[in-house]
Design a protein around this nucleic acid. Structure first.
Length: 476
DNA sequence: ATGTAC
C-alpha cells in the first residue's frame, strides 16, 4: 500500500490504490506512528470504507486508529444522507460508548486518607463486569420510555438535573421515532443492565487536574489545579450490543438487496433513507440514549457515595463537566464544495469536536469539549474543538490513546500481577474484579496518548485546555 | 465491546 505524506501530520492513500475506492483515504498521525500502523489491518480497513456508496471527501482516521470490526476504530466516515448509507460496523458494537467527566470542589490532598475507602464503596455499589446486574429495576414499558427520552427520563426520575443536560452532547437525547428495529432480546438485556459499567476498557477513575493550559478559560469553566475529578467510561452494554448484532446480521442480506458490493462483511450497510436504514438509525439512537442514562445513573450513585464523606472533607459540589459519545453515527449539516449538505457522520472511536462558533449553549464561543482518556495509569486530556476541525475531519477528533496490542497479545505478554504492582508503586490504586483482564488494558497495550494529542492539537482540530492524572482506577 | 460460541 502506498502511503503519501502530505505534511508532518497528514497522510493519504490514493483512490487509485484499489479500483473500488470512491474517494481517497486520509489519516492524521505522527511520523513515529507509521511503522506500527502498517502492522495491523487498520489502513486496509480505512481504504475498504472508501468503497461504500455516498461517501463524501475522504475515508478518515484519527491518530488513535487501530483495527476494528469492518471499519477501523478511530475512523470517521461521512455519507450523503440522500444517496449514502448507514452501517452498524461504522458505529461499533458498543453504541454510544462514551466518556463523562465530573468535577468536584475537593482537592487531592483533602481526600488522601479516605481515597481507599471511597474506592471500596464505589467498587461495592456499582455493578462491574459482564452480567452483574443493574442499579435500578424498571419494567418494559418504563424501559421503552427511558431509551426514547434519554436524559429527560433521568431528569423526570430524579437522577439528573436540567443543568447537567446542558453539559451532555445533544443534551443526552437523540431522536427515536419508533423502536420497530429493537428486538425483545435487546430490551431484556437492557433492562437487566441499566446502570452498570461492563468490562474491557470500561472504567471509573478518580483523578486530579495536574495542569491547566489556558488558565483564564479553565477557571471560568470551574477547573482548578489538584482538583479531584471522576471519569466514567462505558456505553450501552448488552442493549447496544444486541442491536448491533441484530442489524449486522440482517444487513448481510439487506446490502445485497440494494446491490451494494461489500469487500468485507463488517461493512454491511443499508441506504440511510431506506426502511432498513431508518430502522437501524432509530434503534442506534435508542441505544445512545440508554448509554447517556447509564453514565448518568453511575455518576449519580458516585455522587451519593462521595456525599457520605462530606463531613471528612467539606460539603461536596459534584458537577458535570461534559459527557460525550465516541461511537455513533449523527445526521449533521456540513459544507461540502461550498454547499450545505446533510451527512450521516459515522464516528467509531472518534469524538465530535465542533469549533467555538458552530455550537450553542454552555460551550458556545469556547468550542466543544473533547475528553481524551489516556490508557490506565497515564494522563488524560481535556481539549476543545478548534478552527480546522470541520474542514479536516467533519468536526471530529481522537477519543483516546488507541490500541497497539490486540487483547490476546496483551494478555499473553503482560503479567497482570506485576502490572498492578507497578501502577501501585506510582501511587495509583487499582481495584478490579478480574485481575487477568487488567493486562488487556495495560499502558503497553496502547499508543502514547501524548503523541495522539500532539497530532490533533498541531492540526488545530482541537486545542489543549487541561491535563489530568489518575489517583484510582475501578474496573470490571 | 459482549449473558466473552449459531
Amino acid at each position: 500500500m502506498k502511503i503519501n505524506q502530505i505534511n508532518d501530520f497528514i497522510y493519504e492513500i490514493s483512490s487509485e490504490e484499489n479500483k473500488n475506492m470512491l474517494v481517497p483515504a486520509r489519516f492524521y498521525a505522527h511520523p513515529s506512528q507509521i511503522e506500527t500502523l502498517k502492522k495491523d489491518d487498520s489502513l486496509k480497513q480505512l481504504t475498504n470504507v472508501a468503497t461504500l456508496p455516498g461517501i463524501v471527501g475522504y475515508s478518515l482516521a484519527m491518530p488513535d486508529i487501530h483495527q476494528g470490526y469492518g471499519f477501523p476504530i478511530g475512523g470517521v466516515a461521512a455519507f450523503d444522507a440522500d444517496e449514502g448509507i448507514i452501517s452498524p460496523g461504522g458505529v461499533g458494537y458498543d453504541i454510544n460508548c462514551g466518556i463523562r467527566l465530573n468535577l468536584t470542589n475537593w482537592n487531592k490532598v483533602e481526600i488522601q486518607k479516605i481515597l481507599g475507602s471511597i474506592v471500596n464503596d464505589i467498587y461495592n455499589s456499582i455493578p462491574l463486569g459482564a452480567g452483574k446486574g443493574s442499579l435500578i429495576k424498571i419494567n418494559k414499558n418504563e424501559f421503552e420510555k427511558l431509551v426514547t427520552e434519554g436524559i429527560d427520563w433521568a431528569i423526570k426520575n430524579g437522577f439528573a438535573t436540567e443543568k447537567e443536560k446542558e453539559h451532555i452532547e445533544d443534551k443526552g437525547k437523540l431522536i427515536v421515532k419508533d423502536l420497530n428495529g429493537v428486538s425483545d432480546k435487546a430490551i431484556e438485556r437492557g433492562i437487566s443492565e441499566i446502570g452498570s459499567l461492563g468490562s474491557g476498557n470500561h472504567f471509573i477513575e478518580i483523578g486530579y487536574v495536574s495542569e491547566i493550559f489556558d488558565k483564564e478559560l479553565g477557571s471560568n469553566l470551574g477547573l482548578f489545579k489538584n482538583q479531584v475529578v471522576v471519569w466514567i467510561h462505558t456505553g450501552s452494554r448488552g442493549y447496544g450490543h444486541q442491536i448491533c448484532s441484530d442489524f449486522a446480521k440482517e444487513y448481510q442480506t439487506v446490502s445485497k438487496k440494494y446491490g451494494i458490493q461489500l469487500v468485507d462483511r463488517g461493512l454491511a450497510c443499508a441506504p440511510f433513507k431506506s426502511k432498513e436504514g431508518q430502522e437501524y438509525y432509530y434503534s442506534m439512537n435508542s441505544a445512545a440514549n440508554f448509554a447517556f442514562v447509564n453514565r448518568q445513573l453511575i455518576a449519580h450513585k458516585i455522587m451519593e457515595i462521595l456525599e457520605n464523606y462530606s463531613k471528612k472533607v467539606k460539603p461536596l459540589k459534584f458537577e458535570l463537566f461534559y459527557d460525550l459519545a465516541h461511537n455513533i453515527a449523527k445526521l449533521e449539516t456540513h459544507i461540502v464544495k461550498g454547499k450545505k449538505k446533510q451527512l450521516v457522520v459515522h464516528r467509531k472511536g472518534a469524538t465530535r469536536s465542533f469549533p467555538a462558533k458552530y455550537i450553542k449553549g454552555e460551550f458556545a464561543n469556547i468550542g466543544q469539549p473533547v475528553l481524551v482518556p489516556g490508557s490506565m495509569g497515564t494522563s488524560s486530556y481535556i481539549l476543545l474543538g478548534s478552527e480546522n476541525s470541520l474542514e479536516l475531519s467533519f468536526g471530529s477528533s481522537c477519543h483516546g490513546a488507541g490500541r497497539v496490542k490486540s487483547r490476546s497479545q496483551a494478555k499473553s505478554e503482560i503479567d497482570p500481577r506485576k502490572l498492578k504492582e507497578s501502577l501501585e508503586r506510582e501511587g495509583i490504586i487499582i481495584k478490579t474484579s478480574s485481575l487477568s483482564s487488567l493486562s488487556e488494558e495495560a499502558p503497553d497495550a496502547y499508543k502514547d496518548v501524548e503523541t495522539v494529542v500532539e497530532v490533533v492539537n498541531n492540526l488545530r482540530i482541537t486545542k489543549p485546555l487541561a491535563k489530568l492524572k489518575p489517583l484510582a482506577v475501578i474496573k470490571g
